[in-house]
Write a protein that binds this DNA or RNA. Structure first.
Lengths: 195, 195
DNA sequence: TCGGTATTTACCGTAACGGGAAAAAGTCGA
DNA sequence: TCGACTTTTTCCCGTTACGGTAAATACCGA
């Protein structure tokens, strides 16, 4: 619903082409938002129709000409308006959680494999975020814009850390016991849930 | 994409009507998955067409007749098959994160209000999960099925705790200074990012 | 009688997701 | 020089999801 708005946000930094946006959606904002190039292009034409962005053709010699999109005044207004609406908390909506609710009806081995893959994935993410933290924000936030981006990054870090820890817990819990493919149900949670 | 599968998972517990499923999607599985009654009903007819569920009409006197849905053997097989596929890590896709990336282009007061609302929301969630933990699993997991559900709950707990802490951090960072509506950019993150 | 609960169904739309493909014109390595 | 890859945009196809409006049915309580 807010893919258009996410694009507007990207364009507040600098004018970009659809191609660049698609790559941006593969890194910074794309850390928490996936969109392939077609979605981007489709959304850009819609934004142009609404007058939220402006396209300027740049003639290139070696490559096909490109369309550089810029935020218009209306676009900026729309962005502010969108940002002033209360956001709805995103649901988690993770396949794995749903599967866990039916542990008795599914096979655990693929589940464990999945968990391991996920653990690795989230560790990667975590490492990546930490790299961004030290590279892009070595002295913390110096501008308001940096403050926001740093905060977003902090949420990413907290999230990935939480998930990594959880994956480790889950794998430990679902360890196959020596004799078979079954699982040892736990009497008490392995990590005491403190508050 | 997996709404149908989520329904199948619900039906592994016991046969249910669409109405009951819609309410279930308001509590247990609905903690991390939202779906209104129409989505449920639509999906149920599709599942019936595919032969994954079976409907049995129960005649009622005081109320309209209801359709009790049961998993078929095909449905169980489909569920296992689905669960054996590697899951794709869910993106975060939170409006607030996107907005934070454009802090300079938006108004901060609504942002702060939003953060406060979110803080409250996630605190509520956290409290709710903790209640479920002590009520439904007072002695931890005793069956395999409980183990899975407990693990899911643990992820919920970890997630909510992380987000609550983050909201507090964000609010502290975005505190309006005494003189105006502006924000004090931070030189170093308020919480040291440890690892 | 008005409103609420229980239960299902219908029709309307748009937004998002995603694959498969094609243009066009360069660059770079084997 | 050939083939592969990059850059850049576009179009077509589909499904899944989301969301509103609303109707039919029948009981029950205020």
């Amino acid at each position: 619903m807010a893919l258009g708005d996410a694009i507007l946000v990207c364009l507040t930094e600098r004018p970009m082409t659809g191609y660049e946006l698609a790559k941006t959606f593969d890194s910074s904002i794309g850390f928490f938002w996936k969109a392939d190039h077609q979605q981007i292009y489709r959304e850009l034409t819609r934004l142009r129709e609404r007058g939220h962005v402006q396209a300027r053709e740049v003639v290139q010699t070696g490559k096909p000409n490109k369309l550089v999109y810029t935020l218009t005044a209306e676009g900026k207004a729309a962005l502010r308006h969108w940002a002033a609406r209360p956001s709805s908390p995103a649901s988690i909506k993770d396949d794995m959680l749903v599967r866990l609710c039916a542990l008795e009806a599914i096979d655990i081995e693929p589940m464990r494999a999945d968990l391991m893959a996920r653990l690795e994935h989230h560790r990667d993410r975590l490492a990546r975020y930490e790299r961004v933290l030290t590279k892009r924000f070595p002295r913390g936030a110096e501008t308001l814009d940096d403050t926001g981006k740093l905060l977003a990054l902090h949420l990413g870090l907290r999230h990935e850390r939480a998930v990594v820890e959880w994956c480790e817990e889950a794998l430990q819990t679902l360890q196959p016991d020596a004799g078979g493919t079954n699982v040892t149900p736990i009497g008490a949670p392995p990590h005491e849930i403190k508050r």
